[in-house]
Nucleic acid binder design. Structure first.
Lengths: 218, 218
DNA sequence: CACTGTATCTAGTCGTTGACAAGTTAGACG
DNA sequence: CGTCTAACTTGTCAACGACTAGATACAGTG
C-alpha cells in the first residue's frame, strides 16, 4: 500500500492495472515494461520479477481478460441476442484486455493458466450461444417451415455432420461459430475504427446486427 | 536490381516485400526497420528515407493491403457467399497485410493515400455484399413468408430506418454490416488460433458459417 | 529478542532498436 | 563536362528488453 516502502504491497496487481491504462492510452504496440515500472513507482527491473518478461506480463494480462469475459457472460440473461451484446460490451469496456487476448503473438498461448482461463471463457460463451436454438426469443413469432417431409437442404437438422471429419461440423457448431464470428467481427471492426460514420451507440448497432444473423439476410 | 550497386533499384518495393515476410515469420510486434534493412542488404537508415519512420512504412503497407483486397474482391463472382469466402481467403493468404490493416495503432490512419485505398476496398466489399438482397442464390428455395399482411416485425422492409439518425441504419446497411462482421470475425478468430480443433479447410468452414448467416440461426 | 531464509525490489550493464544529423555516391539533366 | 538531386551510408543518441548481482524487508523458528 504505502508506496514509499521498499516493498510495494501488491506490485503484481498494480502492474496489471497499469498495463490496462497504458494500452488504453497508446495501444499494445507502445507498451513498455519500464513505463509500467515508472507508473507503479518502482525500479525498471521490478516487473520482471513477477512476470519473467514482457510476454509473461501479457500472458497474465490476457488470462485476466478471459476471466473477466467469463464473468460478464455468465452474469447475462443467457438469451442469444443479449449474449452477443454482452460480448461486444466487454470488448469496448475492456478494450486493452480484448486486444491482447486475441493477439497471441504478444503472449505465450501455451501457458497453462491462460489456456484454462480461455477454456472457461469459451464454455461460458457457448452456453450463451447454445440458447439460440434451444429456446428462441419468445417475442419473435415462429418462422414457418416449408415442409417437414421435404426439408430445406440449406437448413439440415441440428446434429447432421457436414464436414469430412466426423461430428466436427454439425449444424449447431456452425451456427455457434457464426454467432461468435458476428460478435467478434463487429467488436473488432468497431474498435479498429473501420466502420465509417456510425454515430449510433455500439450496443444498439450490435443488436441490429445480431438480429440479422438470427433471422438471416438472404 | 543489382544488389551490389550503391543504388538498390527498387528499395521501396523490396522493403514492402520484406515487411510481409518478416511479419509472416514473427508477427507485427516483432517487426524491426533494421531487420528489414538487413534483409534488403542496405544500411540501417535506408528505410527511413523512403517511409520517414516505422509508422510511415506500415501506412504504405496497409494501403497496399487495401488495394490487394479490392482487387481480390472485384475479381470474384459478385455472389454473396463467394464474396465472404474471398474476404476470408484474402485474410489467410495475406495475413501480414490483413493484421496491419486492422491495427490502426500501428500506422497513420489519417494518411490520404491510405484513406483512399481503404475507401476503394470498402466500396468493393459492399458491392459484393449488396448482392445478397438483390439476387439471392438461385440454388436455394425461396423461404416461406408467414403472412404478407402481417409482416414479421423482426424483418422490416429494406430501407426502413431503425436507428435514431435518419437513414443511417436501414436494414440493408445492418445486413451488410452483419455480413462484414461475420467475414471479419471468422477470419480474425481463425488467424488468432481461437478456434479449437478445427482441422477442416478454412474456406469450407467459412462457407458453412456464411450459410448460417444467410439463412439465420434462430 | 536474535537468527536465518526467502521473496521482493534496486542498481548496473549489454545488445538492439527507432530516430535523427551529416556526409557520400550515383545517376539524370543541361 | 559540370551540377543538381535523390538515394543511400555512417555516426550518434535515448529508450527498451533482458540479464546479473546485490540490497532490503518480512516471516518463521528458536
Amino acid at each position: 500500500m504505502a508506496k514509499r516502502s521498499y516493498h510495494h504491497g501488491d506490485l503484481r496487481r498494480a502492474l496489471l492495472d497499469a498495463t490496462a491504462e497504458a494500452i488504453g492510452e497508446a495501444g499494445p504496440a507502445a507498451l513498455s515494461l519500464r513505463d509500467l515500472a515508472r507508473r507503479a513507482g518502482v525500479s525498471h527491473a521490478a516487473p520482471m520479477h513477477h512476470f519473467g518478461d514482457k510476454a509473461g506480463l501479457l500472458t497474465a494480462f490476457a488470462a485476466e481478460g478471459f476471466d473477466k469475459l467469463s464473468a460478464e457472460l455468465s452474469a447475462g440473461s443467457g438469451e442469444f441476442l443479449e449474449a452477443g451484446v454482452a460480448y461486444v460490451r466487454f470488448a469496448l469496456a475492456h478494450r486493452a484486455h480484448f486486444e491482447v487476448m486475441f493477439s497471441p503473438g504478444l503472449y505465450r498461448a501455451e501457458d497453462a493458466d491462460l489456456a484454462a482461463a480461455r477454456q472457461r471463457a469459451r464454455r461460458a460463451l457457448y452456453e450463451g450461444l447454445a440458447a439460440m436454438r434451444a429456446r428462441p426469443d419468445p417475442a419473435r413469432p415462429d418462422p414457418a417451415r416449408p415442409d417437414p417431409a421435404r426439408p430445406d437442404p440449406a437448413r439440415p437438422d441440428p446434429g447432421r455432420t457436414v464436414g469430412g471429419s466426423a461430428g466436427e461440423w454439425d449444424e449447431t457448431r456452425a451456427a455457434g461459430l457464426a454467432a461468435w464470428s458476428v460478435a467478434h467481427g463487429f467488436a473488432t471492426l468497431w474498435l479498429s475504427g473501420a466502420l465509417p460514420g456510425t454515430s449510433a451507440a455500439p450496443e444498439d448497432a450490435a443488436r441490429l446486427v445480431f438480429a440479422r444473423l438470427r433471422d438471416g439476410v438472404g
